[in-house]
């Protein structure tokens, strides 16, 4: 029984670390996009490295959590849900890492007139991911509070869609090569993807929370 209690504590801290990684990943992603737009290549590279490490750490933690849940048959009623939750949350940080890498590989040329819009879109999109992390933390400790955070996830996802659409409209109204326009549209979509992934997890979480409430 003592081993079980120790495992419980370890697992709690692993879940915390996993969520911290996602949350930190969101901040690093925002900083990375900002550095790219401001042509601060040194810090951009540092953020790229950082998000890569955070994503790897999140992957390792997720696998450890999965293995511990099944080895020690913990939370048998909810472990399927918890695994689904962690795997899909992992997709959020994956998307952030992939997007930052695309900035590094494809080096999109962002006109000065659109810099503010891109920063704004990034900020709103990662807010959705941050609210998701709050909601997941609540799922583990205070199921009743989950919906207080979930509606914010959905709000910021809608907001990201709105800003993204405006941005794309602006891009296509500018006097640019079509190839450039399409390139910028893709980057808008990549950034929007972060909040889309967060919304997908939020939808699952809403169902898991109903199951979790006695």
């Amino acid at each position: 029984m003592a081993i079980l209690f120790k495992t419980n504590k370890q697992l709690e801290s692993h879940i915390e670390e996993f969520l911290n990684s996602v949350s930190e990943g969101a901040i690093v992603f925002e900083q990375g996009v900002k550095c790219y737009i401001e042509n601060d290549s040194e810090n951009f590279s540092a953020h790229l490295k950082n998000i890569n490490e955070l994503e790897n750490k999140a992957d390792d933690l997720r696998r450890t959590i999965e293995s511990m849940l099944y080895t020690h048959t913990l939370i048998p009623e909810h472990r399927g849900d918890v695994l689904g939750l962690l795997e899909n949350t992992d997709n959020v940080i994956d998307t952030m890492k992939e997007t930052l890498y695309q900035f590094d590989i494809e080096t999109p040329d962002i006109p000065n007139a659109l810099e503010k819009d891109f920063l704004n879109l990034t900020s709103v999109s990662i807010k959705s991911a941050e609210m998701l992390v709050h909601a997941i933390r609540a799922f583990f400790v205070e199921a009743r509070a989950v919906k207080d955070h979930l509606h914010k996830v959905l709000f910021f996802e809608n907001e990201a869609d709105r800003i993204g659409n405006n941005l794309k409209r602006k891009v296509f109204q500018m006097d640019l090569d079509l190839s450039k326009k399409i390139h910028l549209r893709y980057f808008t979509l990549h950034i929007q993807n972060v909040s889309d992934r967060a919304e997908e997890v939020a939808d699952r979480l809403a169902i898991y929370t109903i199951k979790r409430t006695i």
Binding site: L4, N8, F140, V141
Partner: peptide, 25 residues
């Protein structure tokens, strides 16, 4: 019993894993 347990669980911030531990015991 159900009402009492639900009241307690709604008012205490117990981690899912802690609930699992106490439920097992």
């Amino acid at each position: 019993l159900f009402s009492v347990v639900r009241f307690i669980m709604n008012r205490t911030r117990m981690h899912l894993l802690t609930v699992d531990k106490y439920t097992r015991i």
